[in-house]
Every structure is written in C-alpha cells, then in structure tokens.
Design a protein around this nucleic acid. Structure first.
Lengths: 364, 364
DNA sequence: CAGGCGATTGTTACCGGTAACATTCGTCTC
DNA sequence: GAGACGAATGTTACCGGTAACAATCGCCTG
C-alpha cells in the first residue's frame, strides 16, 4: 500500500497527477459515468454504490476538474465584474465585494477586471480579459457615462448589468440602482426644513452617472421648493478635491466671515469631499455648522466621527450588489430559455436610501 | 452570405456555438494544429499561412476557449486570493486590488474569496472554493494569526504566500510585508523627539498580525528609549471602536483637563481609530494636539483632511501586493522545476514605510 | 408467461484545446 | 544525384468531465 502510493506519486521530480473520475471509477469498480452521477447527485444510484464511490473519492483525494466540467458543459459558471477606478472609492469597492459574495451565493464564480482609465483601449482590453475567461455575464460597477456608452458600442454576446447608473442613456444596458433622487430629496428636504435657502452643490465628476443624477435631483428639488440653485462645483470624489474647492470658495468670498458667503449650506455629492470642504472651511476660520452647514452622501463608516459628525444619506451597497447579480443571472437564464422569466425583472425597483442626521447642519 | 450567417446562428432558440480552432482550420484550409500554432506564436509558420489563419479567425470571431486550454495544459493560470474581512479596511482592500492587478500583469488570472468569519469552517470553505477553481497558488490578505495557523493545518498542495504578516509563527507560510517595526520607530521617534514621554497605544485586534507587530514594536521602542509603556487598549480597526476607547479614556481620567490625562500622546494602530479617538477627545472638550497628540498608521487618503490633519505613516500597498504575486509565482515555478530559482526569493526584503508629518502632534 | 417499464449502470462520443510524432518538401552537402 | 536536414504542416491521442443512448435486471400487468 505504502509502496503503491509512493510509486504513484513518483519521487521528487514530477508532481503526481491528481485523480480523475476514471481513477475513482476503477478503484470503486464502477464506470466513470457512475462516478459522474454521484458527483451530480443523480437520483438513480444505489446507496451501496454511492457509498463505494464516495469512499474511493475520499481515498484518492479526488477533486473534480473545473476545466473539464467547463469544457463539456460549455459553461464557465462565472460572471465578470468590470470595476472602474475602485481604488479609493468606498461605494464602488463595497459594491464589488457585494457582487462577488452574491455571485458565490448563487453558485457562480466571480472574476473582476479593474479599469485604470476610461480610454476606449483600456475598456475593451478589460472586457476582452473578462471574455477570455468565458464569463457568462458582466456586472459593471461604478458606471460612468463614458464607460457605459463605449460599452454599448462594443460587440458583446453576453448579458450586461450596470450597478448604480441612470436608467436612461445607458445604451439599453439594464441597471440596478440606489434611488439617488430620493436620497437627494431627503437631504435637501432636511436642509430646507432647517431654513436654508442658499444651498450650494459640490458635484462628482460630470461623467459619473451618480454625480449626474444627484446634480439633476439637486436642481429639481430646489426648483420645486421655489429656491434657486447655483451652478455646481465639480470635484473628483476625493477629500483632496473637496478641500481645494472649499479653499477656492472662501478665498473668492473674500473675508472669511459668514456674512460674505453666498450660501448657508453645501450639499456634497459624497462624504469624502464633504470632509475636505469642512477642512477648508475650518482652516479659513469658519465653523461648521455654525457658519456653514454641510451634508454628504454615502455614509462611509468614518462619517460619524468627522468633526462635526456628518449628516448624510446611507446607501445599501450590498443590497445593490445582490440585485445586480440577480438581474444578471436572470438574463443569463433567459438566454438559455427565452421564455423562462418575465422580462419585467429588468425593471428592478431601486434600493431606497436612508437619511442619517448628525451634527453638520444648523438651523438658519 | 446574409443567409448563411442567419442559418448558422439559428433563429431564437439555440445560441450559435462559438467557433473552435477546427472551424477556423476548415475555413483557412489548414489543420487545427496549425491554427493552434498560430495561436501560440510558433516560429515555423509561413507568413501567408499565418495571415490566412488570422483572417479566418477574424471572420469567425474566434476566441480561444479557456476551459479547453486549461484542460489540455493542466494549468489554470489562475491564482487565488483569500481576503479576510476586507470590507471596511483600507489596507487589505488596497492589497487585494494590488494583487489582482499584479497577477494580471504577470499573465495570471486572479480570483478572490472573501472570508466572513474566521471560524475553521469558513476558512476551509473558502479554501475549498479556491481550490475548486484549480488555482495554482494562493495569496492570503489581511492575515490574522487565527487564519494563518488554521491554514497551516489544512492539507494544501498549492503554494501559499501571506501579505503583511509576521515572519515568525505563520507555520512556515512565506510572507511579504511592509516593515512594521520601521513604521513604528518612525512614529515613536518623532513623538519622543517632540518631548513626549507618556505615550499610549491603541492597538488593533490581538489576532491580527499587523496589530501584533505594531504592539511589539511599540513596547520595544519605548523600552529602548528608556520610557515605560502602558498596557495597550484594543480596538477593532474601526473609527467607532476608537471613539469608544477615547470616551472611556477621558471618562476614567475624570475631569476633562489635560493635567488629568495619564498620557500626552496616543499612537493608534490605524488611521480610522485615530479619527475616532480625536472625535472622543474633542467631544470631551479636549483639543488635539494641544491637550493630546495623536498619530495613526496607514495614511488613508482622508487622513490629510482630518481635523487636525493626521500625522501618520504611509504603507505602499500596491508594492506589497506586487511582491506577494512575485513570490507566489516564483513558488509555482519552483514546483514545476525545483531548481529553477534560488529559494532566497522567499526572504523578500520588506517594503519600507514613510513618515507623513501633519498637525496632530504638538511639542510637549 | 410475454411485454413493458422504471431503476441502475455501462458504452461511446464529444467538448476545444495542446503534445508528440509523422509526413512532405525544398535545399544543401558531398 | 542521393542522403541529410530543417521548415512547415498534418495526424492521432489525450486532458477529465458530461450527454445520449444502450443494456441489464427485477417486477408488474394482462
């Protein structure tokens, strides 16, 4: 026995070839197909047979080869994730993890491609990379209009779903999203309720869908409330950019006294930029919220400990990720069997955000 | 033509089978092996032939099947990443991305398994998941002693490398790391240089390798400087936990005046907890850095905009990730050909961290 | 008791690549 | 001009699973 094993494993040089179902079959005294049946839980297998096969598998430390399964089933059971500039962004990063987890839960593997730039070359390279892994579908995270429109132009024969984007203008790519309008409404409603009338908006980069929705909602809400809105300032989501914008703001207001500021509150498109803004204001001798009120968006785990703790809106990214995966898998199923599911699954209800009131807003 | 394509694609029901190398071969009038050669850049192919094959590939929109390649080469060209509790942790999350990118650069695919808990079951399930994908090696990110020691006990026949852990006590798993001792020395040296003598340490969870190294280095540095150290307080890396600890600290000091505090500075094991500490101190009427100085670790992008901007130490996670991948791939190569590479690659020099001085420390 | 049927198992082919070896052909050498 | 050799290409087998169909067996039905 000892000897047999040693000789099977060879000595040193070449690694032992892992056991295949035929090896198991031989040891169990059945056909390889029977082994395959045991593997897949086929109903018509006698218990004794199954037990023998299982024992053989165990003895040989059998592990099915994914490659072989993929090849013969012509399915990879893998979905791809295209992540744009996830590095320092809390939301997108959370969404990616959520997608990975949700996929695993649904029996799929997930593989992610990071996008360093939005150059057409980089995008198609990333897609190419995913496709070369035979992914059955792709989830786009952190959608920017640039990415989405370029994607729509690419020849693709697998289903695609975007996380957190506009329903319009995505070139027909289905989208799962957190309700941005509702989030903005919550924030602005609160601000207005506290008496604020001149509310500035620091937006995210114009080509990000989220930034666009929030900006649009900002305008719409203020208009609806009979207030006027000022042209937004654009940051790049980082605290650094928020800081720069804040500095420019106080500089251009001249003296750093509350009366000089042409606004009483600023709505930042995410929490990090809000942090930068607060920093800039305070550095200029202004107090938040006494002199300026600030609200953010996302509710990153640190927001509660900003100074002052930030009033913001919470997005449930894991729910978002799960929803994307559901939609994508439905789409994949529909490819196999066109009338398997009602197409209305495409119009998933948006995830609802939640207002988190802390101390960065003062009544006016 | 039109017709031919339509009939090849069928109508509705069954998707067209993607072209294989034999389809390409037929169209180009060569053998499938010749197509394979073109695919792999074999030298002995006439230019005309190659051109014909390429044209055929293009016309059929040929894309090689990864599954088939994996199966026949018996290699997946994939490395796995085991990520523990990456969700809200900046460092681990950055490392994971870095590993993915580095892997891709080196021609490997990467697939990550998230660990929700450190229960033995969860760990082996995650490993099982990776192994079932035929990964050729595994990178462990965010190593905790719990995970590492349990891992060492698991039967595994692929190489493993851990990111950011202790070299000792990892059960022989090779480790790439940022030099934690150096980071702590930088920080503490600076603090001591500013005249601080009573320096408190808020540590990360005791079972995290990083937390352990920093704690150990904290004790060593202070002792070396002839100062005494107090028993550390343990947080869980979150700003929330830093806040709680800070609150307990001021409460137990009684009156909130500088004189009552048994320390003049606190060294937090990461930036988030430092943020929570600052929050707690300020909420108690203490000023940072006038009443207490604080330093963090990591240099997350937001640290520069904390109030006050945080003095901390920067870790280069992308370099760390790249180093892990290099080590892992070397190990994989060594498996194929035992004397391909010198084993000294195992002892990669640690990545050196960098002190970032901002405004959270005042001289005493 | 023949035919039928369901449960259980085996046989053979196939998925789409790569590896190893065979073949063909032109050219160079002696 | 025959043999050698290298370049270019073809043939066949194999990787480790699954699918489709066949075969065997026991028992039920008419």
């Amino acid at each position: 026995m000892q000897e047999a094993i040693e000789s099977r494993e060879g000595r040193g040089r070449s690694r032992p070839r892992p056991a295949s179902i035929r090896d198991v079959a031989r040891l169990a005294g059945v056909s390889h197909q029977t082994v395959s049946r045991v593997l897949n839980g086929h109903p018509s297998i006698r218990d004794v047979t199954k037990a023998r096969v299982l024992a053989a598998m165990d003895e040989l430390q059998f592990r099915p080869s994914r490659a072989a399964r993929m090849l013969s089933m012509r399915r990879s059971e893998t979905i791809g994730v295209l992540a744009a500039a996830v590095g320092s962004h809390y939301g997108p990063a959370s969404s990616v993890s959520a997608v990975e987890d949700a996929a695993r839960e649904r029996g799929y593997y997930a593989t992610v491609a990071h996008l360093a730039s939005v150059a057409p070359g980089a995008i198609s390279a990333a897609i190419e990379d995913l496709l070369s892994q035979d992914v059955e579908g792709i989830v786009i995270v952190a959608p920017r209009t640039t990415v989405l429109s370029r994607l729509a132009a690419l020849p693709m024969n697998v289903p695609i779903v975007a996380a957190q984007g506009e329903h319009r203008g995505t070139g027909g790519i289905p989208v799962a999203s957190v309700n941005q309008e509702a989030g903005v409404r919550l924030l602005l409603g609160y601000l207005i309720g506290q008496g604020h009338k001149r509310i500035l908006h620091v937006a995210g980069p114009p080509d990000w869908n989220d930034a666009q929705s929030r900006l649009r909602a900002y305008k719409a809400e203020l208009s609806a409330a009979g207030l006027s809105w000022s042209p937004p300032l654009f940051g790049d989501w980082t605290a650094d950019s928020g800081f720069e914008i804040g500095r420019a703001l106080v500089q251009q207001a001249g003296r750093s006294s509350r009366a000089d500021l042409p606004f009483t509150a600023v709505f930042s498109s995410n929490d990090q930029m809000a942090l930068g803004l607060i920093h800039a204001f305070r550095a200029a001798g202004l107090d938040v919220p006494r002199d300026v009120s600030i609200v953010g968006f996302d509710d990153i785990p640190e927001s509660a400990h900003f100074w002052p703790p930030l009033t913001t809106v919470r997005q449930d990214f894991s729910q978002l990720g799960a929803r994307c995966v559901t939609m994508l898998i439905d789409a994949i199923r529909r490819l196999e069997d066109p009338d398997a599911l009602p197409a209305e699954a495409l119009a998933a209800a948006p995830v609802e955000p939640q207002l988190v009131i802390r101390d960065s807003v003062a009544p006016v």
